[in-house]
Computed example of a mutant assay.
Amino acid sequence: MSDDPYAILGVKTDASPEAIRKTYRKLARKLHPDLNPGNTEAEEQFKNVSRAYDLLNDPEKRARFDRGEIDISGVERPRQRYYRDFAEPSADQAYTSDAGFADFDADDILSEIFGRRGRSTLKRRGADVRYQLSLDFLDAVNGATRLVTLPDGSTLDVRIPPGIRDGQTLRLRAKGEPGQGGAPPGDALIEIGVLPHPVFRREGDDIHFEQGVPLREAVLGGRIEVSAPAGPVTVTVPKWSTSGKVLRLKGKGVPRPDGTAGDAYVKLLIKLPDRPDPELERVVAAWPRRV
């Protein structure tokens, strides 16, 4: 497996953001697991393509990769450390715990000097480590558990809370670099990237998608099964439902931390039989022409 996101996507290193997005969409439509059920090779390729796009689609991450500061997974590459590296980081960004969406202030880095026996001991909290984690759309909506590999080679199961958003950061306490002089370790900060889905589209906490409906149910009304994000749902199609009619599925959208959920909106598209139906053609031909 290549560690070069440009090679994985098949674009040049000076490719424009639009060219990168266009290439990714083309590959995603071809390799997405929902469109290749049971094809493990396509699934693995899709994961690699998504990981490469997650990095190159972010200007800051792309620039850092080009400078050799991070690898394709967003993990810091080893570098020489200087005194200025121990300066206190910015604490103006809020993070989310892996137990929910509560915000936390960044911990202050304190240096404590002890004069015991004429010697001073420097205590320094361990540095935070940052990761990027790409999630499938439905895993972000419904929640999941993902395995993250730490710099020392150990692994960590990360619980993804339902409804997490693209760009949100999970904070895992004490999973960063070890502290100095008995100080506590730093934290692991995992930035989430949510991959697009070929069918579902998220707007806030609501989900929008399209669903084919047989001509009979569109004309006479009836009940059909639709594939909502959380699983199949049976809905009632009113009589004389034309293409473009939108049905609201209350509470079938994105889960919220308080136990409620957004709604799902399904746009109906009239679907003709897969094979020509002579009887249907005769019935339609007998309809009066209207302007």
Rank of each mutant, 00 (worst) to 15 (best):
V129S: 11
R202Q: 14
R173L: 08
G74L: 07
Y6H: 09
K61D: 06
R202V: 10
L195I: 06
F114V: 10
K22R: 14
I224E: 12
E18A: 11
G181S: 02
Q211A: 04
D187M: 12
R51D: 07
D274R: 13
S154E: 07
L138D: 13
P184R: 15
A15N: 11
E44R: 15
L247H: 14
L9D: 01
F86L: 09
P89H: 06
F114H: 12
K239H: 09
R116V: 11
A91V: 03
G186S: 08
Q45K: 09
I270N: 15
T13G: 11
F65I: 13
D34K: 04
Y265C: 08
A264Q: 05
T242F: 08
D66K: 04
D34M: 01
K252F: 08
S90A: 06
S134K: 02
P278L: 07
L280E: 13
S241V: 07
E88Q: 14
V226W: 02
P162V: 04
P89E: 07
G176M: 02
R173F: 08
L135T: 11
I109D: 14
G253Q: 01
G259D: 05
R67E: 02
G38T: 02
R290T: 04
Y83G: 15
A144Q: 06
T149G: 06
D3F: 12
V235S: 01
V49K: 01
F46M: 07
